[in-house]
Design a protein around this nucleic acid. Structure first.
Lengths: 121, 121
DNA sequence: CTTTTTGCAAAACCTTTGCACAACC
DNA sequence: GGTTGTGCAAAGGTTTTGCAAAAAG
């Protein structure tokens, strides 16, 4: 993988925020510093970075892919009302049944849905 | 919610299978019995059934929504190679941190990725 | 008869891709 | 210089939606 200014910028943006942005949000941030960057480039690099394991993807009910620069093992909470995504650093235990069934686990994605402090009632 | 032949058929199809089909798969099944059913109707009803809690949605890395007629609390395993989705009836414990943080959990979706028996090496 | 649901087709939406040009090494 | 990455715009695939007709109650 060769160096590119655009890819570095995109990586910095994702690694620098904790709000699990979508491609479009990252594109908008990127354009502030690099006004000529294209949406296609953003998508291409996000896919590349995710494939390389540099970032993580989060498939949510809003049907847009969210990205997370924190690749440590953790779960997420998503508010049904405001859509806020919260990190959860004590991940759930991987069920033993999986190993028992001969399944090799490489990755896990646990998402809890509910209402956050601001949106309770 | 008024009765409709199409909705009943769609519900039966999802409840009757364990392979977590996509809208398109359900559409194809439905057409075997109801050749004039439209894809729009399938999508409309799937959304309705999911909103009503009659079925569950599964957001996966393949970018298509999968549906599950089994609404009991359980997790899923998805094979990175063949895409097979396996039910896991011992769900992970919901992290206590969530309650401690004042977050109300209404739902949880845990997906484990890896390689199934058939696809191991 | 009124309201909900359907089929159809078009639109919306997010994401991917082909291509010529620019950037990297 | 050869190869990889970019910008642009067009295409792709899934899901949603507007509308007139059909079905339900």
């Amino acid at each position: 993988m060769r160096y590119s200014k655009q890819r570095e910028l995109i990586t910095e943006i994702i690694k620098g925020r904790k709000d699990h942005p979508t491609a479009d949000m990252i594109y908008n941030s990127a354009r502030e510093l690099e006004p000529n960057i294209s949406l296609g480039t953003v998508y291409r690099n996000l896919k590349l970075l995710a494939d390389e394991g540099v970032i993580i993807t989060l498939e949510t009910e809003d049907k847009r892919l969210h990205y997370d620069g924190d690749i440590s093992r953790h779960s997420h909470f998503i508010c049904n009302k405001c859509g806020r995504i919260v990190d959860l650093f004590r991940p759930a235990e991987t069920p033993v049944e999986l190993k028992e069934a001969g399944l090799t686990v490489t990755d896990e994605k646990c998402v809890y849905y509910g209402f956050c402090n601001c949106c309770n009632h």
